[in-house]
Amino acid sequence: MGNIHRAWLEPLRYTYLKSGLTLSDLSTRVPLAKSKLSELLRGTGLYPRWEIILSLSLQLQMPGWPLYQLWCQAAFEAQKSSDWVERCGDKTSVTTSQVPPLDHRAFREIVENDYRLYAQVFLDDDQRETAVSNTFDILWLRWNEALASPDIRRFAWNTLRTTVMARTPHIDGRPEFGEAAFDTVALQHLTTNTERLRQLEESLQLFKAMSRLPDQQLDIMVLRPHYGICLEPASTLMGVPLATIRSGERHAIHFLESVICPPPETEGNTA
């Protein structure tokens, strides 16, 4: 099961489990046998046709439009052809006039630009836009779950991070984002080739070391030193206490300094 498949399946499964309906109940309302419904909800078997997902969304009272967009992407991820997607996923069966809840739209307006900044550290322009768009589609599907969470901002940030990291190349389990070194503020303000080359080498070394940080510390370093976002806005954006931002940044800087500029050996140190 691919990452995008999981992105729409998990909200669908969560909504089903919260609905109180049984597989027997659904099988009488959806044109699919109970055993096949079980496979679909477990993410096994053949990739499902859109008409089945639409039927389920109607029974579970889920918004069809974000579900349709994620279903299409996951179909391509599952190596389905464009013809298959067009045959099985006629979007005329979904009203494109659906709009997210008002508070979802307001939340998106507040955080979307900052989400793009975060995503562009790891992804190229097309992938960045897709990842951010997917994030808000997933949040639309999971909005009630987000509202019921201890902190909607943290819920949303975790959704963004999961979506971005699913598209980010990894080496030995670490995110690869060396290309971000070419787009640093420090590099843009230099004029000579020698200065730019030296800064680029330093940035590449820094980003390689940053990839070894724990998830939260990495995110803090992306927002704080890389983009210069102040402490309180970073705390608000990630949905974590201000003290966590301060502590995370302090520990991250200590680790990076120890890796990039290790302290010299003291005299008389023997092997």
Rank of each mutant, 00 (worst) to 15 (best):
M1P: 05
H5M: 12
R13T: 09
T15H: 13
Y16N: 05
Y16L: 09
K18A: 07
T22Q: 04
L26P: 04
S27C: 01
R29W: 11
L32F: 00
S35Q: 10
K36G: 04
L40Q: 13
R42F: 06
T44N: 11
L46V: 05
P48H: 10
W50P: 01
E51L: 11
I52P: 00
I52F: 00
I53G: 08
G64T: 06
W65R: 14
P66G: 01
P66N: 04
L67R: 08
C72M: 13
Q73W: 12
A75N: 08
E77G: 07
A78R: 11
Q79S: 15
K80M: 10
V85T: 14
V85D: 09
G89W: 13
S93L: 14
V94W: 09
V94I: 07
S97F: 00
S97P: 01
Q98I: 05
P101F: 12
R105D: 12
R105Y: 15
A106E: 14
R116Y: 11
L117I: 06
Y118S: 03
L123M: 07
D125M: 06
D126R: 15
R128P: 00
R128M: 15
V132N: 07
V132Q: 10
S133Q: 08
F136E: 02
L141D: 05
L141N: 01
E145C: 08
L147A: 06
D151V: 01
I152V: 08
W157S: 03
L160V: 04
H170A: 13
I171V: 15
G173Q: 10
G178E: 14
E179R: 13
F182H: 01
L187H: 04
Q188R: 12
E195D: 11
L197R: 15
R198F: 02
L200C: 06
L200I: 05
Q205T: 11
Q216E: 14
L218M: 13
M221L: 07
V222Q: 09
L223P: 04
P225H: 02
G228S: 01
C230K: 13
L231P: 12
A234G: 07
A234Y: 08
S235F: 04
S235Y: 04
V240D: 02
T244F: 00
S247E: 08
G248I: 02
R250K: 13
A252H: 09
H254F: 07
H254W: 04
L256A: 07
I260W: 06
E265L: 14
T266S: 11
N269P: 00
